Simulated assay, not measured.
Amino acid sequence: MSRERAFNLAALALLVAVPAWAQLTGETFTITLATRAVIFALAATGLNIALGLGGLVSLGHAVFFGIGGYAMGILAFHAQSYTPLTDWPVTIPGTKLMPVIWLVAILVSALAALLIGLLALRTTGVYFIMITLAFGQMFYYFAISWPAYGGEDGMAIYVRNGFPGLNTLIPIQFYGLCLAWLLVVLWFNARLARSRFGLALNAARQAPQRVETVGLDPVRLKLVALVISGAVTGLAGALFADLNRFVSPTMFSWQLSGEIMVFVIIGGVGRLFGPVAGACLFVALEHLLGGITAYWHVWLGVLLLFIVLFGRGGLVGIFAGRGAVHD
C-alpha cells in the first residue's frame, strides 16, 4: 500500500469516526462542523477537477457554489406555503425536495460553467484568472440587486428540505447524505483521472500543442472539465444552503472563491484527498483559533506560505511524497 493511499484511508476513517463519536457523546455542534467541512471538501474537489487535472486557475468558482445555493433557496422558497397568521411553512416538512434540488443545482451550475467557459477559455494564464473573477463579481452584484430573493440581506429557508426515508433535521443523517455525495464524487474523480479523457486532459494541461498534433482539441477538453467542475461545486452550494437554511450574495464572493482554492492548495493540488484534507484543516482552524482571536487567518496564511515554499504537494504530498496523484 502506498503512503498516499494510507493517508486517504486514514482521512476517510476520520470522516466516519469523528461524527460517530460526536453522535455517541451528544456533541451535535461537532457534527455540524464536520458537515460544513465535508461540503467545503466537495466544493474543493470540484475545483480540483479543473485545477488539478486541467490546470485551470479559477478565481470565480464561487459562482457555481452560489448558483447551486440559490437554486436550492428559490426552489424551497416557492415550495413553502405560508399561513397569513403564523407566517410559517406548512407544506415543506412533507416535501422531499432534495433529489430535485440536487438535479437542478447540478444542471444549472453546469450550464453556467459551459457559458462562462466558452468565453473564459478564449484566454489563458492571468487573463483567464481575471475573467473568472469578473464573472464572480458580476453574479455577486446581481444577487445583491435581486430584491425578490432577499437582495443584500439574503433569504432564509425556514425548514430543511426532506429526503425520502430520512429525517434531514437530525444532524447525523444530514451529515451522512453529504458524506455519501463526497465519496461518490471522489470515486468519480479517481475514475476520471485514469480514464482516456483524464489522461488527455492532463496532457492538454502540460503540453497543449502536442495534444493538438494528435487531433485533440485542448480547449474542448478543458471546457468539459470546467463543466464537470462547476456541476460538482454547484451541488456543494445546494448542500451548504440546506445546512444553513440560508442563502446570501456572499456565496458568490471572490473571498469564497479564494478559500476554495486555499483548500486545494493546502491539501494538495491534483491529489485525490487533497481538497478533503485542506477543507477539514480550514474548518478546524476556524473553530479552534477563531475562538481565541479574530485574526486567526494570520496562522492560516503562515501555513499556506510554508506549504507553497516547502511542501508543493500540500499536506498529502508532505505525508506521501511526490508519488502519483489520485492514488
Rank of each mutant, 00 (worst) to 15 (best):
T25P: 04
I260C: 01
G301H: 01
G46M: 01
V219Y: 02
L115T: 03
G321P: 03
A207M: 13
M251P: 03
F142N: 03
D217V: 08
S2G: 00
V232I: 15
G69A: 13
V227T: 11
N167E: 14
P275G: 03
G278M: 01
V100K: 11
S145P: 04
N244Q: 08
G68L: 11
A41Q: 06
A10E: 07
Y70T: 10
A190S: 12
I260F: 09
L303T: 11
G154H: 00
V185S: 04
Y140N: 04
W181G: 02
R271E: 01
A241E: 01
M261Y: 03
A231Y: 06
A113N: 02
V224M: 15
L42K: 13
D327N: 13
G46C: 05
Q80C: 09
I307E: 01
E4M: 10
G198W: 04
E152P: 06
S2C: 02
A120I: 09
G215F: 06
A105M: 09
A200M: 12
L119P: 09
I292S: 04
S81N: 12
S81I: 12
G321D: 07
V283M: 14
P275M: 07
V16F: 15
E4W: 08
R160C: 07
V224G: 06
F142R: 13
L53Q: 15
L272I: 05
